[in-house]
Structure formats: C-alpha cells, structure tokens
C-alpha cells in the first residue's frame, strides 16, 4: 500500500494507477477486503520479483519499488490494459485487481523488455 509519509505530492501523483482498462479484465480497486490479499511484486534495479506471479481471478497485485530508479508496470498488449505509470523509489502503486483469468505479460516503460514479468490469473474453481 502507498506510504504517504515523507512523500512529495509528485510522488503521490506518480503512484496513482492510471488504469487504461479493458473493463472485462481489470477494474481499479481503491479499498476493500480483496486488497488485503494483494500479491506483492517488487520492482528491483532491473527486474521484477517474482518474475511470475499466479493469482486467482479477483485478486490484486501491488507493485512496490524497492530500487533506486523509477519503474512502471505496463502491460505488453497494445491496448495497454494496465499501467501503473512511474512509481518512484520507496513507493508502491495502488492495488490492481485482475478480474478475469488470463496471462498478462508486462514490462517497465523506462527499461523496456529487459525488465519484464508476467501475471498469471487462474479461474476460480
């Protein structure tokens, strides 16, 4: 979750997820019980950790920047179904809920393909 202490306004704005969504796949989540089940992905120097995260439909993901550089988590698809925009060091993005099953590869806009990973969303039984 976003830590507002010692964070500039710029950092706050940068950390708000501007989700360009395929409404069938994702919906923005600001609060709620699902947020507490969010999978955490670390944004490291030039990698995401873990590189592959498997969650269930309806679960969310939070990207946490533990590195020294700005990073984003931006979906690879042309429609840009999700995009956290740049998250500054020590900040986290808003939780993103993945409402539909599927495979969602993504990358950092600044660092390109070199920094990429995937979210795998499984169907609820």
């Amino acid at each position: 979750m976003l830590n507002l202490q010692n964070t500039s306004l710029r950092s706050v704005l940068a950390s708000i997820a501007l989700v360009l969504v395929n409404p069938m796949a994702l919906r923005a989540q600001t609060a709620g019980p699902e947020a507490s089940k969010a999978a955490i992905v670390e944004m490291r120097s030039i990698s995401f950790f873990p590189k592959s995260v498997t969650i269930a439909e309806g679960q969310s993901v939070v990207w946490k920047n533990v590195s020294y550089t700005d990073h984003s988590a931006t979906s690879d698809d042309e429609a840009k179904s999700f995009d956290t925009n740049m998250i500054v060091p020590k900040a986290s993005g808003q939780p993103l809920v993945f409402a539909k099953a599927g495979r969602f590869p993504y990358h950092c806009k600044m660092h390109g393909r070199t920094m990429s990973a995937v979210i795998i969303v499984t169907s609820k039984p």
Binding site: S67, T69, P89, G112
Partner: peptide, 11 residues
C-alpha cells in the same frame, strides 16, 4: 551505480 539506469538497455 544502482539508480543511474534511466533508459531502455536493449536500445
């Protein structure tokens, strides 16, 4: 230095 790479290294 960690924190100085601000571009796409593939490019």
């Amino acid at each position: 230095k960690d924190g100085t790479l601000t571009w796409d290294p593939e490019k």
